[in-house]
Design a protein around this nucleic acid. Sequence first.
DNA 1: ACAATAGGGTACGACCCGTACCCTATAAGG
DNA 2: CCTTATAGGGTACGGGTCGTACCCTATTGT
Lengths: 191, 191
Amino acid sequence: MRRRGEELERAILDAAAQELRESGYAGMTMDRVAARAGTNKNAIYRRWPHRAALGVAAYRQLSDDVMPQPDTGTLRGDALELLRRANETWSSPHGVILRALLAAAADEPELLTLMRAPSGADTMDRAWLSVLERAAGRGEAPAAAVHQRVASTPIMLLRAEYATRGVPSVPDGILAEIVDEVFLPLVRGRA
Amino acid sequence: MRRRGEELERAILDAAAQELRESGYAGMTMDRVAARAGTNKNAIYRRWPHRAALGVAAYRQLSDDVMPQPDTGTLRGDALELLRRANETWSSPHGVILRALLAAAADEPELLTLMRAPSGADTMDRAWLSVLERAAGRGEAPAAAVHQRVASTPIMLLRAEYATRGVPSVPDGILAEIVDEVFLPLVRGRA
DNA sequence: ACAATAGGGTACGACCCGTACCCTATAAGG
DNA sequence: CCTTATAGGGTACGGGTCGTACCCTATTGT
């Protein structure tokens, strides 16, 4: 009863994901993945060329969370809510792994493109855009502010916050500052 | 004639910096640094605990460029100029090394704080603040917009651009977009 | 002159990646 | 049903790296 193809691939991915969970990307070594999957590195390298490629694939197993739309009735409330959720995601164990992967793949462009989807960048952007659209519908924001780059700004700032500080989690005050000092003035102008 | 203390330390740092220049951070191996400095790893590890620590210290040798104040007469011109310079810095060989170091030190908070200074974050922030202050003096910006977080936003966005795309350099159109769609509306509101 | 210190030389253990080789179970095809 | 190509399993290895240990020697300062 020797596993093959699909089944074996699943087993490898599960093992890699488990290693990621337990030891992070730095601890996800090929030998350990092979051992845990009950196979050998041969079968792994036949499928993924690098350790990093396996890491990305395994991370994908790990994260398939959807980002539900918040609807607090105000632009500020929606924005703060989205930012808080993003902060939770990034500071969670998943986020730690994700950041390690991003860091490790910093100089391999192909891996970065692979990372884009699982990092939730697209669904995230859509969520922010729809928050902006609803605000525009309520008259809380001008139509000109419904813009891709405006929508992505708060997340970019949060991400940069993680990159510059080494903190495990960004304090809530910073989130509020991003919303009140950047996002809201950007959308509505300064009152 | 055996070198000691200050002199030896200089030689090690110079060797490390040279290795960084030639082979990047990944290629800056301890053995090679020791060989190039004409010493051995002993002397290195007596001074720096990690490879990463030596990398940071060596990078400091490499980059002591000042950021001269642009003064184009308009807020938009100043901002675009600062952003272009930052883009050049980040896309230069130095920038590549810097990014590799930042990535490598992503999970060691002490190293991140060490990186803050050489990454030019402080001088950069001051430059942006003074641009904002001059704009306020000309009546081009409200006093409320002279704010730390406003000042740091464009650089944060540029940095995030480097992080998400794997590009060696951010195209000028993106810089203009950051200025026109985010920075200027943020400072002056939407006309 | 002599002891404490710091460098130099070298070797080593531990770890990891990626590859090679050889054997065997399985699946497909005649 | 038998044969053959394929893919897994086991294992070992080369190459490279980090960080440490040991022992000897030059230099410094007392």
